[in-house]
């Protein structure tokens, strides 16, 4: 079975000589929920721009559901829905028209286009705003409008380039749920995000691009398994002036009521709690210091020589 997306030796050199992609090869399986990660300037948006035919490639091949974007662009484009990073709709058009017009560009008749626009605007909580000029929408609404617009022709592959950037947590979580549902219904999704919690929560497979090269391409679970050490923050009940001896653990006192502990993944945590109890220290709550994927991301990208990363 052909992949939803197949990229072979993709290269891009811009006119100013900047080499954005140095020969990336990647496959995304049908039905996958795939994360494309990387620091700023790594080449993620260039890759997406080439897939969407908004950027001309310098070399290599890209096919969407077996349709080459160069030799069979119409078929390839019909399979693809794109939610770009930047707002790119006409700010002076009503919401409903933006979505219905997009359907029209795919040859969907006007009546059907408006019916679909209604369906997706309702699903994304924008139906009440259908007659509103797009420029007056909030940031989160504008993002949801771009998702509705990308889905209106019912693409088999949906690419979202940082869809939740600048969106508050409540809307972000409702967008996650919506994306899970359309993925469960069969749409392949590729996501780029700076919120690694988002990738960890949603995506089954992950690729990391750095400086135009693919430095990791595996399943999210496998990637997380390579994490040997995790750091936890422990909130304790009684203030401590000095940390007691806890042999075998690396524990630090952050403030009088907070401990930070590095714990190896192959070590049970029960012993730590027993040792803390022995010193009459009660743990009220515990959480990860950083997102697990974020730790891995930093390690991989720093290992690739990039020190100016922004996860």
């Amino acid at each position: 079975m052909t992949s939803a997306l197949s990229i072979r030796d993709l290269k891009k050199t811009y006119k100013n000589g900047h080499v954005a992609l140095k020969g990336i090869s990647l496959d995304v399986a049908r039905g996958d929920f795939f994360a494309l990660l990387g620091p700023n300037g790594a080449g993620k948006s260039t890759t997406i721009g080439i897939i969407a035919t908004l950027i001309n490639k310098s070399g290599g091949e890209v096919s969407i559901f077996g349709h080459d974007i160069e030799s069979d662009p119409a078929a390839a484009k019909s399979c693809l829905g794109l939610v770009p990073q930047e707002i790119n709709f006409n700010q002076f058009e009503p919401v409903e028209e933006i979505v219905a017009n997009q359907a029209g560009y795919y040859g969907i008749p006007r009546a059907e286009a408006f019916a679909r626009a209604e369906r997706y605007l309702r699903q994304l909580g924008l139906w009440e705003k259908r007659r509103t000029m797009a420029r007056t929408l909030s940031g989160g609404m504008k993002r949801r409008l771009m998702i509705a617009r990308a889905l209106v022709h019912e693409p088999r592959l949906l690419i979202l380039d940082e869809p939740t950037a600048g969106v508050d947590i409540e809307i972000r979580r409702s967008m996650w749920q919506f994306l899970r549902e359309i993925n469960a219904a069969g749409t392949t999704i590729i996501l780029t995000t700076h919120y690694l919690e988002e990738a960890e929560s949603l995506c089954r497979n992950v690729a990391i691009i750095d400086e135009g090269e693919l430095i990791e391409n595996t399943s999210t679970r496998q990637l997380l398994n390579t994490l040997h050490m995790e750091t936890f923050i422990l909130d304790i009940d009684n203030p401590l002036e000095r940390l007691p001896e806890l042999p075998g653990y690396s524990v630090r006192l952050i403030d009088e009521c907070t401990l930070e502990a590095d714990i190896s993944r192959d070590r049970a945590m029960n012993q730590l709690f027993q040792d803390l109890s022995a010193h009459d220290i009660k743990v009220l709550s515990m959480r990860n210091k950083t997102n697990r994927l974020e730790q891995l991301f930093m390690r991989l990208v720093e290992g690739n020589g990039n020190t100016g990363v922004q996860a």
């Binding site: 119409a74 790119n88 709709f89 560009y105 795919y106």
Partner: peptide, 18 residues
């Protein structure tokens, strides 16, 4: 020019419109 400036020309470019 407005569609280039606001980038909504991309709506047509990503679609299979000749």
């Amino acid at each position: 020019y407005g569609s280039k400036f606001q980038r909504h020309i991309e709506e047509m470019l990503v679609a299979p419109v000749p």
